[in-house]
């Protein structure tokens, strides 16, 4: 089974987000960038499927030069091949999807895996976009997966429960936390990954469809009312929730 895994580079979850000088993007100075946490599950699933069914695992990211960091992380985890599609400055999700589809058409994978969301724009849209462009089925937020020939049986998390979905390869999925237990790359593999080749391509994507006008930090909250833990305080809290906040 040949597998393509799409990954992205995002600010570490502990980052305090500050708006940059352009007023439209994050100030990147001092920000630590990491492999998108959900992509670890996507890469691990690719590696485990290869172990069971043979084939190869390729990772792709659409980014600038800095995207090589996360490609090397994936190489250290054990993927066979890494592709950097050099992005245009003002690309949006549609551009990224088109670039990934171009790579997919070259390597003809049986399965494409993403993380369920990239934790920067949190849009959950890459898997269905790529699938629709390829005329393939897609299943997002997958928590279990089993393969029998070309039939896939998957469970995905929905509000208040799970859906079981049956589909066929080729297909696109996005990985939920809990799908597997991602491996930590070992030091010798991290060192070896530094000298592995990375294939580079240019973005061929169309004009953007969505443009950001402004980025803002949400308004700061006023200092709340802090009470103690006496019976009177607890009664006062319930009264405030009922009469002032009117939430109960």
């Amino acid at each position: 089974m040949n597998i393509l895994v799409g990954i992205s580079r995002v600010p570490d979850t502990a980052t305090k987000v500050m708006v940059g000088d352009d007023g439209r993007t994050i100030a990147s100075q001092g920000v630590k960038y990491i492999l998108n946490p959900y992509d670890e599950y996507a890469i691990e699933e690719g590696l485990q499927l290869k172990q069971k069914h043979g084939g190869s695992v390729t990772v792709v990211t659409v980014a600038d030069e800095a995207g090589k960091d996360i490609l090397r992380t994936a190489l250290a985890m054990g993927v066979d091949k890494a592709v950097l599609v050099r992005s245009k400055e003002e690309s949006d999700s549609f551009g990224v999807a088109a670039d990934i589809v171009a790579v997919a058409k070259d390597i003809a994978p049986d399965l494409i895996i993403f993380g369920r969301q990239s934790i920067d724009f949190d849009s959950f849209q890459m898997a269905p976009m790529v699938a629709e462009l390829l005329d393939w089925p897609s299943v997002s937020i997958v928590s279990t997966l089993s393969v029998d020939g070309t039939t896939l049986q998957l469970e995905r998390d929905v509000e208040g429960g799970k859906e079981t979905i049956t589909t066929t390869l080729p297909c696109v999925i996005s990985a939920q936390k809990g799908l597997n237990d991602p491996r930590y790359p070992k030091l010798p593999d991290i060192i070896k990954a530094k000298s592995k080749p990375i294939e580079e391509r240019e973005s061929t994507s169309e004009a953007t469809r969505v443009s950001v006008i402004a980025m803002e930090n949400p308004p700061a909250k006023n200092q709340g009312k802090v009470l103690g833990d006496s019976d009177t305080d607890i009664a006062e809290l319930v009264r405030l929730l009922h009469e002032e906040a009117k939430v109960i």
Binding site: F94, S123, Q125, M126, P128, R156, R209, V210
Partner: peptide, 23 residues
Amino acid sequence: ATAAGKELAPRIAIRLQAGLIAD
């Protein structure tokens, strides 16, 4: 922006050659 809506909206946007803003 539910599990179902998040799966549908990107596909509809591709079909309609439309831009999409999520959430």
